[in-house]
Design a protein around this nucleic acid. Structure first.
Length: 439
RNA sequence: GGCCCUAUCGUCUAUCGGCUAGGACACAUCCUUCUCAAGGAUGGAAGCAGAGUUCGAUUCUCUGUAGGGUCACCA
């Protein structure tokens, strides 16, 4: 393998769903690795036995797959399976007097008061400076860290030690993570020096914020990939949006395929400040991707969001209305409700706004019914060409509004021709006659 | 509070010292249109404050202010 090969990594702890912020971190690691013809490693940091759950490992893996983010390691390793490795380093560190065992009382939790033999790292209290690919030089005085704890006991190593060892052993060259990891960096660099590891390059991504600029969380609406998938967003749209949240290529292009993203991605152009997650813009991206789909692709992608017995003629109407699949049912119940039994309505609703009373309206409806009664072909084109001369003669609103309202029972709906086609001759005439009788 | 990071329209952002500060989302108006959606056009909307460097600062430096992150025997 090429010695200079880029290796990035995505090491979530399986303690929840794949949060949008973490998804973007995975995405940027993926883009950076691909861009540099390197690899991305996916592993689980599950040393917190209490919070780590196998179910979450599964959702996280599924979420990445759904997004189209792939990793290059065949087996997804878990830290709980690498204990022997950590112990080896721990013993070495202690033997070299870089760390020491210390008998201390546990201060919090169920075991408070009990004694424990923690392992502390001998901190030389130096100043640590590292160059962040996004933020530039960052300096910490590590004095305040003290001799920090790296293991609960010799058999239970803690996070800072395990990441550093994993990254070293797996040959990680670039650590791309959220900005909340900045203050962990000096500790980890100290540990790298302790075990004789090479210092990787760091890039800290700005955080994704809720609309009130606080940290995004599940309580503030959809916050995980699973939530967004359930709402019916397209993975391509999410990827596109997430990449442009905090990064842009400096051109005015907004729509990118994943391949284009890989080609154009430049980590040094990542924004330094946090970005608010804006659903409106996600909606726009999603709509763009929907409109680019063929009807077949749309039907296939929408899948379970579509009722089993949906008229294929309704598909294009749905497709042009919605932002995301979750809006299909509300649209079917709303503007496209003409497919359902006709709702009751006030007869005044049949009147076009420029008419003063219902006298003309009744006359117009009669003419519409007469025209369509002799019509055999009920395709929207035929219905339109049959009705159009009448509409031109009497005024489009005068004819089309009552016709459309009689057919849909709604203020808002698709045009009366497409409704006629979908309803068919019998039902169309039934609804028109019903309106006529009302007046 | 200590330490660290950040600061351009409501939101995401462009600008590698020259700006009439550009684009996108959202919003408003208009056009198209029987209605809605889509589409087209137009518009309103921003450099946190103060000092310094400079012929010239949104861009560089400092201070202040504000926001965020982080301070575990969690990860």
């Amino acid at each position: 393998m090429n010695k200079n090969a880029v290796i990035t990594r995505f090491p979530p702890s399986p303690t929840g769903f794949l949060h949008i912020g973490r998804a973007r971190t995975a995405l940027f690691n993926y883009l950076y690795a691909k861009k540099n013809e390197g690899k991305m490693i996916f592993r689980f940091e599950d040393t917190d036995l209490v919070r780590s759950k196998k179910e979450f490992e599964k959702v996280m893996e599924e979420s990445l797959v759904w997004l189209g983010i792939s990793w290059d390691n065949k087996v997804i390793e878990r830290q709980t399976e690498r204990l022997e490795i950590y112990k080896k380093y721990l013993h070495k560190l202690i033997a070299e007097d870089k760390a020491y065992v210390s008998k201390e009382k546990i201060e919090e939790g169920e075991k408070a008061g009990q004694e424990n033999e923690v392992v502390r790292f001998r901190n030389a209290n130096a100043k640590i400076t590292f160059t962040d690919l996004i933020l530039g030089d960052i300096t910490f005085d590590t004095t305040e860290l003290g001799d920090f704890i790296i293991a609960r006991n010799i058999n239970e190593p803690l996070y800072h030690l395990t990441v550093v060892i994993d990254d070293y052993e797996m040959g990680v060259t670039h650590i791309i993570r959220g900005a909340d990891g900045i203050s962990n960096t000096p500790r980890q660099i100290l540990l790298q020096q302790g075990i004789g590891a090479q210092k990787p390059l760091y890039a800290h991504l700005p955080l994704i914020l809720a609309p009130d600029k606080s940290k995004l969380s599940g309580r503030k609406g959809a916050a995980s990939v699973t939530d967004l998938k359930k709402l019916g967003y397209l993975p391509e749209a999410l990827i596109n949006y997430l990449t442009l949240l905090g990064w842009n290529p400096g051109t005015e292009q907004e729509l990118f395929s994943i391949e284009e993203l890989i080609q154009t991605f430049d980590i040094s152009k990542v924004q330094k400040s946090g970005a608010i997650f804006n659903v409106e813009k996600l909606n726009w991206f999603n709509k763009q991707y929907i409109s680019k789909m063929s009807l077949d692709q749309f039907a296939k992608a929408a899948g379970d969001f579509l009722p089993q017995t949906i008229s294929p003629k309704l598909l294009p109407l749905i497709k042009e209305k919605i932002n995301y699949f979750g809006e299909i049912q509300p649209t079917l119940d709303g503007e496209l409700s003409f497919v359902q039994p006709l709702p009751s309505y006030q007869k005044e609703s049949l009147k076009w706004k420029q008419e003063s009373d219902l006298v003309n309206t009744k006359e117009y409806l009669k003419k519409i019914i007469e025209t369509l009664s002799t019509q055999t072909d009920f395709s929207k084109e035929s219905v339109k060409s049959a009705i159009w001369p009448l509409a031109e003669d009497k005024g489009k609103g005068n004819i089309l509004w009552p016709m459309r309202f009689a057919l849909s029972g709604k203020e808002k709906s698709p045009d009366p021709f497409i409704i006629s086609e979908i309803l068919g001759k019998e039902e169309t005439l039934r609804r028109l006659n019903f309106a006529y009788e009302l007046l």
